[in-house]
Simulated scan of single mutants.
Amino acid sequence: MVSLVIGDLVVHLCGVLDATLAGDVPGERRVVVPTSGRSDTDPFQADAVTLLIVNVEEDRLLRPPNPHERRDESGVSTVAPDLRLDLHMLLVARFARYDQSWTALSSLLRYFQTHPVVDRITDPALPDGIDRLAFTLHTLSLAEQAQLWGFLRTAYLPSLAYRVSMLTFTDTTPTARPLVTERRLDLAHIPGRDS
Protein backbone atom coordinates (compact mmCIF):
# COMPACT_ATOMS: atom_id res chain seq x y z
CA MET A 1 0.00 0.00 0.00
CA VAL A 2 2.72 2.50 0.99
CA SER A 3 4.83 1.93 -2.13
CA LEU A 4 1.74 2.21 -4.34
CA VAL A 5 0.79 5.59 -2.88
CA ILE A 6 4.35 6.94 -3.07
CA GLY A 7 4.63 5.74 -6.66
CA ASP A 8 1.32 7.39 -7.54
CA LEU A 9 2.50 10.60 -5.86
CA VAL A 10 5.76 10.63 -7.86
CA VAL A 11 3.86 10.16 -11.14
CA HIS A 12 1.37 12.88 -10.15
CA LEU A 13 4.10 15.35 -9.18
CA CYS A 14 5.93 14.69 -12.45
CA GLY A 15 2.75 15.60 -14.35
CA VAL A 16 2.08 18.76 -12.33
CA LEU A 17 5.68 19.97 -12.52
CA ASP A 18 5.91 19.08 -16.22
CA ALA A 19 2.89 21.31 -16.88
CA THR A 20 4.55 24.05 -14.81
CA LEU A 21 7.60 24.00 -17.07
CA ALA A 22 5.59 23.92 -20.31
CA GLY A 23 6.05 27.62 -21.03
CA ASP A 24 9.69 27.88 -19.93
CA VAL A 25 11.40 24.71 -21.15
CA PRO A 26 11.02 23.17 -24.61
CA GLY A 27 10.50 19.45 -24.99
CA GLU A 28 7.92 16.72 -24.74
CA ARG A 29 8.71 15.43 -21.23
CA ARG A 30 10.37 18.06 -19.08
CA VAL A 31 10.09 16.32 -15.67
CA VAL A 32 10.98 12.64 -15.52
CA VAL A 33 11.91 9.94 -13.02
CA PRO A 34 15.14 7.93 -13.19
CA THR A 35 14.85 4.92 -15.44
CA SER A 36 16.06 1.59 -14.14
CA GLY A 37 18.03 -0.78 -16.29
CA ARG A 38 20.14 1.90 -17.95
CA SER A 39 23.59 0.72 -18.90
CA ASP A 40 25.38 3.76 -17.50
CA THR A 41 25.37 4.79 -13.85
CA ASP A 42 24.05 8.33 -14.43
CA PRO A 43 20.33 8.34 -13.53
CA PHE A 44 19.68 11.85 -14.87
CA GLN A 45 18.15 12.27 -18.32
CA ALA A 46 19.52 14.98 -20.61
CA ASP A 47 17.32 18.00 -21.40
CA ALA A 48 14.97 17.29 -18.49
CA VAL A 49 14.49 17.69 -14.75
CA THR A 50 14.68 14.40 -12.91
CA LEU A 51 12.51 13.94 -9.81
CA LEU A 52 14.15 11.59 -7.35
CA ILE A 53 13.05 10.49 -3.86
CA VAL A 54 16.30 10.23 -1.91
CA ASN A 55 14.92 9.43 1.54
CA VAL A 56 11.72 8.50 3.37
CA GLU A 57 11.40 9.15 7.09
CA GLU A 58 8.71 8.94 9.73
CA ASP A 59 7.38 12.23 11.07
CA ARG A 60 7.56 11.63 14.82
CA LEU A 61 6.32 15.07 15.89
CA LEU A 62 2.65 14.26 15.30
CA ARG A 63 2.78 10.68 16.56
CA PRO A 64 -0.13 9.57 18.78
CA PRO A 65 0.47 9.02 22.53
CA ASN A 66 0.38 5.24 22.09
CA PRO A 67 2.33 4.64 18.89
CA HIS A 68 1.41 0.96 18.76
CA GLU A 69 -2.38 0.94 18.67
CA ARG A 70 -5.44 2.96 17.81
CA ARG A 71 -9.03 2.04 18.62
CA ASP A 72 -11.49 2.02 15.76
CA GLU A 73 -14.96 3.58 15.99
CA SER A 74 -16.47 0.62 17.89
CA GLY A 75 -13.73 0.76 20.52
CA VAL A 76 -13.38 -3.01 20.54
CA SER A 77 -10.80 -3.96 17.96
CA THR A 78 -7.63 -2.09 17.17
CA VAL A 79 -6.04 -0.86 13.99
CA ALA A 80 -2.46 0.20 13.40
CA PRO A 81 -1.75 3.85 14.19
CA ASP A 82 -1.44 6.40 11.41
CA LEU A 83 1.95 6.44 9.73
CA ARG A 84 3.07 9.95 8.78
CA LEU A 85 5.93 10.13 6.32
CA ASP A 86 8.19 12.86 5.05
CA LEU A 87 9.76 12.35 1.64
CA HIS A 88 13.02 14.00 0.67
CA MET A 89 12.67 14.93 -2.98
CA LEU A 90 15.55 15.99 -5.21
CA LEU A 91 14.89 17.84 -8.48
CA VAL A 92 17.94 17.67 -10.74
CA ALA A 93 18.15 19.74 -13.93
CA ARG A 94 20.41 18.48 -16.70
CA PHE A 95 20.40 20.65 -19.80
CA ALA A 96 23.08 21.34 -22.41
CA ARG A 97 23.24 24.96 -21.28
CA TYR A 98 23.83 25.73 -17.62
CA ASP A 99 21.43 28.68 -17.66
CA GLN A 100 18.61 26.46 -19.00
CA SER A 101 19.01 24.23 -15.94
CA TRP A 102 18.55 27.18 -13.62
CA THR A 103 15.65 28.55 -15.67
CA ALA A 104 13.83 25.23 -15.19
CA LEU A 105 14.66 25.07 -11.48
CA SER A 106 13.59 28.70 -10.99
CA SER A 107 10.18 27.88 -12.48
CA LEU A 108 9.83 24.93 -10.10
CA LEU A 109 10.97 27.05 -7.19
CA ARG A 110 8.31 29.63 -8.11
CA TYR A 111 5.67 26.85 -8.27
CA PHE A 112 6.50 25.57 -4.77
CA GLN A 113 6.68 29.13 -3.43
CA THR A 114 3.14 29.81 -4.64
CA HIS A 115 1.88 26.31 -3.71
CA PRO A 116 3.57 25.47 -0.37
CA VAL A 117 0.55 23.37 0.62
CA VAL A 118 -1.48 21.27 -1.78
CA ASP A 119 -4.76 19.64 -0.77
CA ARG A 120 -7.85 18.23 -2.47
CA ILE A 121 -9.27 21.74 -2.94
CA THR A 122 -6.21 23.15 -4.73
CA ASP A 123 -5.43 19.88 -6.54
CA PRO A 124 -8.45 17.53 -6.84
CA ALA A 125 -6.33 15.07 -8.84
CA LEU A 126 -4.18 14.10 -5.83
CA PRO A 127 -3.79 10.30 -5.72
CA ASP A 128 -6.11 8.31 -3.46
CA GLY A 129 -4.84 8.13 0.09
CA ILE A 130 -3.22 11.59 -0.02
CA ASP A 131 -5.28 14.45 1.37
CA ARG A 132 -2.65 17.14 1.95
CA LEU A 133 1.00 17.79 1.10
CA ALA A 134 3.35 20.49 2.37
CA PHE A 135 6.51 21.38 0.46
CA THR A 136 9.50 22.91 2.25
CA LEU A 137 12.74 23.89 0.56
CA HIS A 138 15.52 21.91 2.22
CA THR A 139 18.92 23.56 2.07
CA LEU A 140 21.76 21.06 2.11
CA SER A 141 25.13 22.02 3.57
CA LEU A 142 28.19 21.62 1.35
CA ALA A 143 29.13 18.45 3.25
CA GLU A 144 25.64 16.99 2.78
CA GLN A 145 25.74 17.86 -0.92
CA ALA A 146 29.14 16.21 -1.32
CA GLN A 147 27.84 13.10 0.43
CA LEU A 148 24.63 13.00 -1.65
CA TRP A 149 26.38 13.47 -4.99
CA GLY A 150 29.00 10.90 -4.01
CA PHE A 151 26.21 8.48 -3.17
CA LEU A 152 24.61 9.15 -6.57
CA ARG A 153 28.03 8.56 -8.22
CA THR A 154 27.87 11.60 -10.43
CA ALA A 155 29.20 15.14 -10.55
CA TYR A 156 27.12 17.94 -9.09
CA LEU A 157 24.24 19.17 -11.25
CA PRO A 158 21.95 22.15 -10.58
CA SER A 159 19.30 20.92 -8.17
CA LEU A 160 16.71 21.72 -5.52
CA ALA A 161 15.89 19.61 -2.47
CA TYR A 162 12.42 19.63 -0.91
CA ARG A 163 10.84 17.94 2.08
CA VAL A 164 7.34 16.71 1.24
CA SER A 165 5.37 16.43 4.50
CA MET A 166 1.98 15.22 5.69
CA LEU A 167 1.86 12.02 3.71
CA THR A 168 -0.33 9.95 6.07
CA PHE A 169 -1.10 6.26 5.77
CA THR A 170 -4.11 5.07 7.76
CA ASP A 171 -4.84 1.42 8.46
CA THR A 172 -8.51 0.80 7.78
CA THR A 173 -8.50 -2.94 8.42
CA PRO A 174 -9.20 -3.70 12.10
CA THR A 175 -7.24 -6.51 13.63
CA ALA A 176 -9.02 -8.38 16.42
CA ARG A 177 -6.92 -8.58 19.55
CA PRO A 178 -7.76 -10.63 22.63
CA LEU A 179 -9.24 -8.64 25.48
CA VAL A 180 -7.56 -8.81 28.87
CA THR A 181 -9.98 -10.69 31.11
CA GLU A 182 -7.72 -11.66 34.02
CA ARG A 183 -5.20 -9.73 36.04
CA ARG A 184 -2.28 -11.54 37.53
CA LEU A 185 0.32 -10.15 39.88
CA ASP A 186 3.30 -12.20 40.95
CA LEU A 187 5.48 -10.90 43.77
CA ALA A 188 8.85 -12.32 44.63
CA HIS A 189 11.16 -11.61 47.49
CA ILE A 190 14.71 -10.68 46.49
CA PRO A 191 17.20 -11.91 49.10
CA GLY A 192 19.36 -9.19 50.58
CA ARG A 193 16.86 -6.38 49.96
CA ASP A 194 14.86 -4.90 52.80
CA SER A 195 11.25 -4.04 52.14
Rank of each mutant, 00 (worst) to 15 (best):
R63T: 04
A19C: 08
E57P: 02
D47K: 09
E57N: 10
R30C: 06
L85D: 03
A80P: 03
L91H: 09
V56D: 02
L91N: 14
M89K: 05
A46G: 07
T41G: 14
L52H: 14
L17Y: 03
E69A: 15
L90N: 06
N66Y: 08
V49R: 14
N55K: 13
V79D: 00
D82A: 14
E69D: 10
T50M: 05
P26W: 03
G75K: 08
L17F: 06
L85M: 12
T41D: 13
V56W: 00
V79G: 02
P65E: 01
V56L: 14
F44L: 14
D59I: 04
L21R: 02
L61Q: 15
D18F: 09
S77G: 05
R70K: 06
L51K: 09
E69R: 13
L52D: 08
G27R: 03
P64I: 02
R84M: 11
P64W: 08
S39M: 08
L90H: 09
R94P: 01
L83R: 06
R38G: 06
A80R: 15
P34E: 00
D72R: 11
A80K: 15
P26F: 06
L85C: 07
R71E: 10
E69V: 13
I53S: 09
V49C: 05
V92N: 06
R38Q: 13
H68A: 12
A80E: 14
R29F: 07
V32C: 12
P26N: 07
G37F: 07
L87I: 05
V56H: 09
L91S: 05
T35H: 11
A93V: 06
E57C: 10
G23P: 00
T50A: 01
P34V: 02
R30Q: 11
G75I: 08
I53W: 05
L17I: 05
D42N: 15
H68I: 11
L90T: 14
L21Q: 03
P34T: 09
D42Y: 06
